[in-house]
Design a protein around this nucleic acid. Sequence first.
DNA 1: CTTCGAACTTATCATTTGTCAAGTGGATTA
DNA 2: TAATCCACTTGACAAATGATAAGTTCGAAG
Lengths: 188, 188
Amino acid sequence: MRKYIEYIGGTLPDTDWQLYKDHLKVTSAKKGDIILALNKPCKTIWHLAKGAVRKLEIDHGIEKTTHFYIAPKVFTVLHSALTGAPSDLSIVCEEDCEFLELDIKLLQELYEKSIYIERIGRRMAEEEFIEEFSMRRMFLKLDALQRYEYIEKEHPEILRRFQLKDVATFLGVTPETLSRLRKLRFSV
Amino acid sequence: MRKYIEYIGGTLPDTDWQLYKDHLKVTSAKKGDIILALNKPCKTIWHLAKGAVRKLEIDHGIEKTTHFYIAPKVFTVLHSALTGAPSDLSIVCEEDCEFLELDIKLLQELYEKSIYIERIGRRMAEEEFIEEFSMRRMFLKLDALQRYEYIEKEHPEILRRFQLKDVATFLGVTPETLSRLRKLRFSV
DNA sequence: CTTCGAACTTATCATTTGTCAAGTGGATTA
DNA sequence: TAATCCACTTGACAAATGATAAGTTCGAAG
């Protein structure tokens, strides 16, 4: 976790770091476990220490993957966490996982107590925004094959640790199309 | 501006608000003016008080619109502003505009002076993230016609104040395709 | 070991979207 | 006013992707 903070250019004095750490709860989950069910309000920030999870939505009965997270990584369902509304996303473990959980309400109290923690919150939101925008640009600029090649080159870990059918919906194509694109790639 | 802060659920005590206001610089620009050129580092946060602007990138010589902003709205090129790197986006006025500009460096100093301003910064980043994600979901869930209908229904102002060719690239289709989709829509 | 089911692939055909080329209309300018 | 430019539209054809159905492979469960 502290590494992630440094990665986004943040620093946390020891006392603030201690304050933060004291509110984390250690949990774990098995492959296949759903850690956030559809339509449940999201009340947690997960610090994924080990494993891999997937965020998904249901679109006309079809599962569509919106995010892949691989440890170490911090994630939540922001809209739901901020407003208390039911989450339109679900989160499932794709491997056995270990977490440090932080309650949203507790985090908001920590914001009051430490400007440094508030700052980390801002930096994390900024990074997520940039990442999300770069994903959208992928759809504006690249066709399906190029999007696949981008993942292959920039995030090969995703191909190793998640199912292709989920990578397909993440890329905005059907699993059949992804299969054809991969074949195309090998023959060139 | 203060309205925008309230909209995102923020509050700014009078003294902090005064501090913030004192650092804003009033500027204006004409329709067609480029307020941020491609490859220049972005050093400004613009508070768009009046008018409409468009953010765009160049992809293989083709202009692609990434954002539309209509007053009142706050925007910057976050990645460039945070890192000092040249902006891969350009910003152009689509109407005569009035701005309140805030220098990025000044804002970072203000973060040191006021936890409330820091908090507004966090809230803005969070809102931008949620907005950006909802845009990406549009590409995952909707085909081109449905994306157009979404804009027509949820953001009709965009159709009134920007050119269709730019709406087309924003939606990830060619202007010719958008034209056909619109024709289709009217005949149904 | 065998069976079963789910992921993945492959094939065929329909649909959507892109490309290229040309035409229309309205606004700006000489 | 006339000429010009550019956004927008339209048409014909090509390419990409989706839908459906069926086949293959592999790992999990009995």
